[in-house]
Design a protein around this nucleic acid. Structure first.
Length: 298
DNA sequence: GTGCAAGGCCGCCAAA
DNA sequence: AGTTTGGCGGCCTTGC
């Protein structure tokens, strides 16, 4: 198997209608080969798995697939599946703007702690009664999706919102944190901004301006809530992007560095080693052995 | 919010 | 050839 030269980025799947929202079963999704290759999305995805066997690898962490489990993929995350039995269940995908349509709810995607997770897994295993509730809600969503008429759009938005608030409650119970939703949503918003801007050299003031706070407040708040300085978080995100490119492309280490705005390959090497404990080329070898193992042991 | 000093980051160079 | 390590210094970030 040859490594693709570039890492695929999937835009919103083409639909006959204009709304950035779809719900499908994995059967209807067609070629599972697409999901078996490392790729990333511009959209959010909630996967409700009811059957199938294998592993789902999200940004280098493998998660065994099991029934009655939800998987949350945020924009930019590199993921792929290794299936020995095809997936069963639903995939719900949407863009953030779907929640922000005129007349929609004022809530923000960043209030959902299962997207842009801060330390927690992007996975939620449901117990039997919770799974039944989520499943019937998603089934109702899928039915509404196949309808036509004016009420469809507001209903789908409402269904999605209620689904996410319900998931949020279960997720918060599974992964308790001490900070409030408002505080952690600020962190998630910052981290998402960082993940989309870290490949350019973006000064701290730009992030602060986007978040409508001063640089001083940004530094203090992020340090307070995460224990890390903004700079540390930015560098961690850059290191993650470097890992993605090393693992999934044929770019040389120096080229990966250039892409991430490192003028000097030698400094990039030192940066990467400090962040991950491994040199770029050792990481590349190691992760490919790991993935090969996952492929062959499943 | 402002100022300042210490430390860490980042780029240049050499060498293995 | 490309990668990795190390020294050196300007300058940005951090934390008081």
């Amino acid at each position: 198997m040859t490594t693709p030269r570039v890492l695929p980025i999937h835009g919103f799947p083409g639909t006959e209608e204009a709304i950035p929202f779809t719900i499908t079963t994995f059967d209807d999704l067609g070629s599972p080969t697409q999901d078996a290759l490392p790729h990333r999305h511009e959209f959010y995805a909630i996967q409700y798995v009811t059957g199938g066997k294998g592993n789902h690898i999200i940004d280098f962490s493998p998660y065994a697939l099991s029934p009655d489990t939800l998987y949350f993929i945020s924009p930019g995350q590199v993921h792929f599946g290794q299936f020995t039995r095809p997936l069963e269940g639903y995939a719900i995908v949407f863009l953030e703007e779907f929640l922000l349509y005129p007349g929609s709810f004022s809530s923000s995607i960043y209030e959902m702690s299962f997207f842009h997770t801060v330390g927690q897994k992007p996975v939620l295993r449901l117990n039997r009664p919770d799974a039944a509730g989520i499943k019937s809600h998603i089934s109702a969503m899928a039915r509404e999706y196949s309808h036509t008429g004016q009420e469809r759009l507001p209903l789908l938005r409402a269904y999605l919102y209620i689904l996410m608030v319900n998931i949020q409650r279960l997720y918060a119970a599974a992964y308790p944190v001490q900070n409030s939703v408002k505080e952690t949503s600020f962190v998630r918003k910052f981290k998402h901004l960082v993940s989309t801007h870290c490949t350019q050299q973006t000064p701290l003031e730009t992030y602060a301006a986007r978040l409508n706070v001063s640089t001083g407040h940004l530094s203090n708040a992020i340090k307070e809530l995460t224990g890390q300085s903004p700079g540390q978080i930015i560098r961690r995100e850059i290191a993650l992007e470097a890992k993605r490119l090393l693992a999934h492309t044929d770019l040389t280490a120096a080229e990966v560095g250039y892409r991430l705005n490192f003028e000097d390959p030698s400094y990039f090497g030192r940066f990467f080693k400090k962040a991950t404990g491994l040199s770029p080329s050792t990481f590349r070898k190691q992760v490919r052995i790991q993935y090969h193992d996952i492929v062959s042991t499943v």
